[in-house]
Amino acid sequence: MAGRLRLLVPIVCSTAFAGCGGGQSPLSPKSKPAHDISTLWWWMLAVASVVFLGAVFMITIAWLRRKREGLPYLGRRENVANGLVVVFGLLVPVAVLGVVFVIANLVVTKDTDAPAAGSTAMSIHVIGHQWFWEVRYQGTPAVTANEIHIPVRTRVDVAVNTADVIHSFWVPELNRKIDMIPGQTGRILLYADRPGQYRGQCAEFCGVQHAHMAMKVIAEPAATFRGWLANQSRPARAPTTPAQRLGRQTFLTTACSDCHTLRGTAARGVIGPDLTHLMSRSTLAALTIPNRPDELARWILDPQHVKPGNKMPGLKLDAAETRNLVDFLESLK
């Protein structure tokens, strides 16, 4: 039955929703948990549609027969009317709801539960910050932000925490969401059937820039992933040109280093994202802008314009300082 449904899903999906397949739609699942949830949805939609259309049909009948008393065929016997209420208002709903309960809450929910201990190949620790995601790869020194690389077709255990307020970790094409609540650790499975990029977004209102707290999961072949992780585990590259050296100087002597970490240097700030391998990311500020030199310069000069209210202040840097700083940051491959 599930197999037949799986065939049905993309058809209904592509005709009903033009937006399917792009972005972060729960209706374009790319893993078993997300798939089961979307199948559950289509079934529930089918049942709900029958109920809804049935009721609309009855109201239409009431309108068509507004001049006549009683029900078609059944007439105006009061006990028939009461019986209808008992059957359709009480018995049928109880039966339908019972089925929904068993399938959804006893069967499907198993797929979306936190992964059993030891059932996963690797663990990632994601920490929500106002308004970005800190990502740590357990057992390695690798720390990154907002772009989570995982090996494809591998069960990955994600443990989530928050550094401040409640956030919610949600990559809908891969799994349901899990809240990040102070004082507790949430756990969820990440698994991707196919290589690709899957967008996610904070799903609990967390303050002014809740709207710009997005992320993406990048599922790639195991070998690519291992190469990426090895690079992430290394300290920051040393500058190679005079401009880069000046830029690094600026970074280490201004407030940048109070908030950001560059592993292998004196910059150990923990308020903002780890910038050790900034250039391995394709976006900045939790997917708010692309990671291009001009955008990077714009961000450093006036982050409050790009993402109003975020926790990074604009520092007063002159044109040369900014150019050198961007030069340096561009070298952090």
Partner: peptide, 16 residues
């Protein structure tokens, strides 16, 4: 749609 939110996994996917 309220009934659907009593389906735990669906709720966890679509809440918020």
């Amino acid at each position: 749609s309220g009934v659907m939110f009593a389906a735990i996994p669906f709720d966890q996917q679509l809440t918020d």
